[in-house]
Amino acid sequence: MSASSLVAEAVWKEIESTHSVNDDQLWTLHFLFGKNFEGATRIVDQRGVSKISAHPSGRFIFQVTGESRRKDQYLCFPENFCACYSFFYDVVNRGEQLCCKHQLAARLAASLGSYVEVKVSDEELAVLLSKV
């Protein structure tokens, strides 16, 4: 893992343990992720992150509402996937970013517990995941 990833991981763990975020942590994440983190905080503030959990298995995925006027929704695994174009082009293809703003929003919302909880059946989640 790169130094940036390790630092980010340590900060996320701190936030997860307290379910709160302080100025130092916000500053560090902003330093690491720049404008993407600004976008992520706006999305979380607007309650734009949903956690879709399946019952009874407990498997889940996040759905993040984008900032564009169209309010596109992206399925997202915070650690390593988002269905948006930025993830494919900037993160995977060019390697210019560690992750996209939707992943950051999902990770921040998950760490703080500030997401909308959506319960679905295991079968419904399987259908949703197959459309990723």
């Binding site: 498997r59 695994f77 390593n80 996937f81 494919f88 995977v92 293809n93 995941l129 990723v132």
Partner: peptide
């Protein structure tokens, strides 16, 4: 034009998620 790469990305992400689960 990068459709195959996109499909691989989606498949590996799903695979990783399934294995983590």
């Amino acid at each position: 034009p990068r459709g195959r790469d996109m499909a691989m990305v989606k498949t590996l992400a799903l695979c990783h998620n399934a294995i983590t689960f």
